[in-house]
């Protein structure tokens, strides 16, 4: 290769020029390293700031009545019992509906649809749904379930959350199943087992930690979702566990309370925000630990 192709930074015969070039290259390197460090520190600073704010304001408002009292008008010492229970019910049912579907789709993609056109399309659509704005899922369930069935309901909220759960479970299930070695599958088939038995008793079992991770991440994601619930389960200021009625949920209550003008409601919103964030981040950490342990 001729010297001209190396470009302007070709080694110079002149020692002074060479030394100056070396210095400027080192300076550029040091500058960018510093900028990278600063960017990382700023990212961590934001996380710390959010957590600090939540702990500072959330703990101040967190007391026994938050967990024992239902939501009440401002000034009457209410709590967050019905939003907490409502969120638990809807998150649980949403996950329970979405997980089997997501598991089957992930299995289809990993075990049946390699190289097939339909499989490619399903994978693409599932990835789009994974990142699609959740408010649109809410609007869809509103048009598809709330309007035809004549009113906001806990069930509609569960379905909206289930739609959000599906693509997350699909992604992790497919990823985990594709990591399994083919020799594992071949040895099961060689024993004469039908394919469905191979998948259910061997592949799913071998990938169980990854699949459970996906489910936990899905729970963590939908537990904090607000926008889809605004149009489906709406929220309910009274105690209600009837799924065919509007149902309260923690994120929607936080949204309504934080935007209000009453100090005690805002304090309750912080308490709720702390509860939900601790839950979501806790689930994330558990899921990560599980994945690492499983590998």
């Amino acid at each position: 290769m001729s010297a001209t192709t190396i470009g302007s930074q070709a080694p110079s015969k002149n020692l002074q020029v060479a030394a100056a070039l070396g210095r400027s290259r080192k300076r550029a390197d040091a500058t960018v390293r510093l900028l990278g460090l600063i960017a990382t520190l700023i990212g961590l600073f934001f996380l710390a700031s959010i957590l600090f704010t939540l702990f500072y304001r959330g703990f101040a408002a967190l007391n026994g009545t938050v967990f024992t009292e239902v939501t009440k008008p401002p000034g009457s010492n209410g709590g967050l019992l019905n939003p907490i229970v409502g969120s638990l019910i809807q998150t649980f049912l949403g996950t329970a509906i979405g997980t089997p579907i997501g598991l089957l789709v992930g299995t289809y993609l990993a075990e049946y649809a390699q190289g097939s056109r339909l499989g490619g399309l399903v994978r693409f659509v599932s990835d789009i749904l994974l990142s699609a704005p959740s408010i649109l899922i809410g609007l869809f369930v509103y048009s598809a379930l709330v309007v035809p069935f004549g009113g906001f309901s806990g069930w509609a909220g569960c379905v909206a959350l289930a739609i959000l759960v599906i693509p997350i479970v699909v992604r992790t299930t497919e990823d985990m199943l594709s990591l399994l070695p083919n020799t594992l599958r071949e040895s099961v088939i060689a024993l004469g087992a039908p394919k469905w038995k191979m998948i259910v008793t061997v592949c799913w079992r071998a990938a169980i930690s990854g699949i459970v991770t996906g489910i936990l991440l899905a729970i963590a994601r939908v537990a904090g979702e607000t926008a889809p619930l605004l149009f489906t389960s709406l929220g309910n200021l009274n105690w209600s566990v009837n799924l065919s009625q509007p149902m309260s949920s923690l994120p929607v209550t936080i949204y309504n309370y934080a935007g209000s003008a009453f100090q005690d409601w805002i304090a309750l919103a912080w308490a709720g925000a702390l509860i939900i964030t601790l839950g979501v981040l806790g689930l994330n950490i558990v899921a990560r630990g599980l994945l690492r342990g499983g590998k």
Binding site: T40, G43, L44, F46, L47, S49, I50, T53, L54, R57, A220, R221, A223, G224, E225, T226, A227, P251, I254, Y255, A258, A269, W270, A273, I276, T277, V280, L281, N284, I285, R288
Partner: peptide, 24 residues
């Protein structure tokens, strides 16, 4: 640890960002 912390930033529900943005 730093990678996990950055990923946790992605896991914080958006309503929390809203409150934090509005009040802080």
């Amino acid at each position: 640890p730093v990678g996990t912390a950055i990923e946790l930033l992605a896991a914080v529900p958006s309503i929390i960002y809203g409150m934090w943005g509005f009040f802080i």
